[in-house]
Structures are given as structure tokens and as C-alpha cells.
């Protein structure tokens, strides 16, 4: 099995998110970057499949992805491909450059996270599947590899799942919680230093979208309960009592 995993170095939505001065992006100050959480599950799943069935795991990153690619190599990926282009929020462009960068890799399976934790487009995987014309499934919560095919359960609404069988090569986008991603070990970090991280240059092509404006959503905010923890507790209890909840 030759498995390609796409991994994004992405800002954590729980870090300080502020609009940049030009109003067209996010202020990098206060942002904490790491491997996109969904991709962490995807790389873990790929490594597990290789551990069971043999083969190779190749991780691909677009833009400034070095730290994330190194992390994936330390987790157990065999080699990395870096595409040094900033495609921003344009998932079409991202998918297009990945398609070109992996043109010479005869893969069996591509795994991507369901979406990125910063832009939440949930597009790169599906667009890539469309461009490559291969079978695909999204929001996958379980995978078993059989002879020349994969059995995958997708997440639907309301706790339901949908089981499908896909012939290889195929592309699956991975839902969080599919596995328990391993921690990076010191040995892993050491080993990663000797692994290949190849930079490839591809043409960025045309962009499909342009960011016009980034802004804070206008919302009606909750009434705030303030004071010391004890005061807050008392005020809250009063509210609950008024409603007959205690």
C-alpha cells in the first residue's frame, strides 16, 4: 500500500483570533500553529494501515508546512513532499498543486483530514478526488483495507453511519476521533531527521476566489453574570430558582 496523506500547518482556532490591519486576513500575532487536527487523525490512520499491510506513507504539505511535515515524519511517515506556495483560502488552487506534485506517485490511497481547523472549507480532498477521477468518501470514521479495496464507514447526521466499499485507488477524508493519534517520541524525532523532505516546484495556476473582507460576526451576546465565583454562583442559583429548576 502506497498511501499519500495531506497535512496542513494550520492556526489553532482556540488561539487568539483577530482580524488583520488590512481587514482581509487574520493577524498572525497570537496565533498558535500546529498540524491541522483532522490531519493528525489522517496521518495516524495511514501509519496504522502501513503497519498492518506494509507499504509507504508519503506526507504532502502546501505552504509553510515544515514543522507539520517533520512532525508527521516523527510519527512514522516515510517521506515528505513540500509545495512551497501560499494558496491561502483557495482550496481549488491547493488541490490543483497537490495533484501536480503527486503526478509521478502511483498511490493506492489518499487520506486527508475532513477539513482544516482554520478555514473550514472541507474542500481540498473532494476537489482532488474529482480532479483525479477516483472513488472517494468523506467524514470517514472507520477503515478496513481488504484485497484491492477499502471498506469505509462515513459519518452521517444524528449518530448514523454509512458503510461503503471503494476499489483502490481511492481518496478518503478522515473525521476526527477515528483513532487515538500517537505522540511523537524522541526516537521518532531522531529518525525523522534522516528521512527525505523534498521540495517540489509546481505552477500555482489561477485562483478561484479572492478574500474581500474578514470581520467579527455580529451577534447578540448573552447577558453576562459577573463577580467572584461565589457571587456568580449565587446569581445563577437565583436565575435557576426563578425558573423552577431548583
Amino acid at each position: 500500500m502506497k498511501i499519500i496523506v495531506l497535512a496542513k500547518h494550520a492556526a489553532d482556532p482556540e488561539s487568539e483570533i483577530r482580524v488583520s490591519a488590512d481587514g482581509k486576513g487574520v493577524d498572525e500575532k497570537g496565533l498558535v500553529f500546529d498540524i491541522n487536527d483532522w490531519d493528525r487523525y489522517a496521518i495516524e490512520e495511514a501509519i496504522r494501515i502501513r503497519e498492518q499491510h506494509g507499504g509507504e506513507v508519503i506526507v504532502v504539505g502546501v505552504g509553510y508546512a515544515d514543522d507539520t511535515l517533520r512532525k508527521c515524519l516523527a510519527m512514522g511517515a516515510d517521506r515528505a513532499i513540500k509545495i512551497p506556495l501560499d494558496t491561502g483560502m483557495d482550496s481549488y488552487q491547493t488541490a490543483k498543486v497537490v495533484k501536480e506534485a503527486i503526478a509521478d506517485e502511483s498511490f493506492d490511497l489518499i487520506l486527508t483530514g475532513l477539513m482544516s481547523q482554520d478555514h473550514n472549507n472541507a474542500l481540498v480532498g473532494t476537489l482532488l478526488a474529482g480532479m483525479l477521477d477516483i472513488p472517494f468518501a468523506t467524514a470517514v470514521t472507520s477503515i478496513s483495507v481488504e484485497d484491492g479495496r477499502v471498506r469505509a464507514v462515513r459519518e452521517l447526521e444524528g449518530g448514523f453511519g454509512e458503510e461503503n466499499i471503494l476499489p483502490l485507488p481511492a481518496l478518503l477524508t478522515i473525521q476526527s476521533g477515528i483513532n487515538e493519534p500517537r505522540y511523537v517520541s524522541i526516537m521518532g524525532i531522531k529518525r525523522a531527521k534522516t528521512k527525505e523532505l523534498r521540495e517540489v516546484s509546481v505552477d500555482a495556476g489561477e485562483s478561484m476566489i479572492q478574500v474581500d473582507k474578514v470581520y467579527i460576526p455580529p451577534v447578540e451576546k448573552a447577558e453576562l453574570i459577573e463577580g467572584s465565583p461565589e457571587e456568580i454562583a449565587e446569581k445563577l442559583i437565583e436565575i435557576l430558582r426563578d425558573r423552577g429548576l431548583i
Binding site: Q117, N120, I209, Q210
Partner: peptide, 19 residues
């Protein structure tokens, strides 16, 4: 054509101009 969507899990909105 201008579309509006949330990013960063609902923390920000973005207007994108589509080609």
C-alpha cells in the same frame, strides 16, 4: 459574485469574491 461564510469554527466571517 460574493459569498459569506464562517472561518475559525465560527469566530470570524469572510466575504469572498468568486472568479
Amino acid at each position: 459574485v460574493r459569498a459569506t461564510r464562517y472561518i475559525f469554527q465560527g469566530k470570524l466571517l469572510v466575504d469572498v469574491l468568486v472568479r
